[in-house]
Write a protein that binds this DNA or RNA. Structure first.
Lengths: 120, 120
DNA sequence: TGGTATACCCACTAAAAAGTAAGTATGAAT
DNA sequence: ATTCATACTTACTTTTTAGTGGGTATACCA
């Protein structure tokens, strides 16, 4: 088995939260469990395919857990695992820095809007 | 001018530190200014092209500053701007979580190594 | 029997990111 | 004139990531 090597810790973190969608999904799930349709509404630009695909990858990394209710019509939600919750501080900081960055850029005259703040 | 809108702060953050290389470069520059050749040694997998390209993008975002010494042969280094330093906490957390993630995975039997720790 | 609602899955295409290999520019030293 | 060292730059190719449009399954309900 070939050994996997990292030069620096952040590489491993980015493998988990990197890419266009994972950090966004996780920032939402950090606040509460959400079902597929809720996530689609919260992240309107994402396609169904990408949402499911990213959730599967986060499941495989043991960051989120898929929870199936035994109901009809089907009902599923996704929530952070205990391990996923260990990312909570990182995720929150990522949100906050972005909010500050947006504020600053707007103060400097850029036409830029943030729709939802992660006020915690 | 079309208004740029973000749904959530983390989107703006990832625009700055996302991609395969930026967070790695920034984690190095967080600790000290470094010249091109030093960065190449610190990040052996990166190509020259990607290194320069990512540095240019970080410059454009006002996160790093290019510093030219008036010498021959040429000598240039890159360092975080004051604004770039505002990312320091985030970057450090990204490193630390990754280190913990790697430790955990090794404890669970995965063949995995971290070469350099970000001990601060 | 057909419509509703949810949560998918798949094949195909398009776009973005990254990799490779070569070349340019400067000026000093030999 | 040639070589050296550094820091790029460019053209081209490959790989990875993401988007589109369709289809499936379940069981209730009219």
């Amino acid at each position: 088995m070939p050994e996997k090597t990292y030069q620096i810790g952040v590489e491993a973190t980015m493998e988990v939260i990197g890419g266009k969608w994972k950090s966004i999904i996780l920032c939402h799930l950090r606040l509460k469990p959400m079902r597929t349709s809720e996530l689609e509404r919260a992240i309107p630009q994402i396609s169904q395919k990408m949402l499911v695909q990213q959730l599967r990858e986060l499941e495989a990394a043991n960051i989120v857990q898929r929870h199936v209710y035994q109901e009809v019509p089907p009902r599923v939600d996704y929530r952070l695992t205990d391990y996923g919750h260990s990312l909570s501080g990182v995720l929150h900081q990522l949100c906050v820095w972005g909010e500050e960055n947006i504020d600053l850029r707007r103060e400097q005259g850029e036409a830029i809007t943030l729709l939802h703040r992660d006020d915690l």
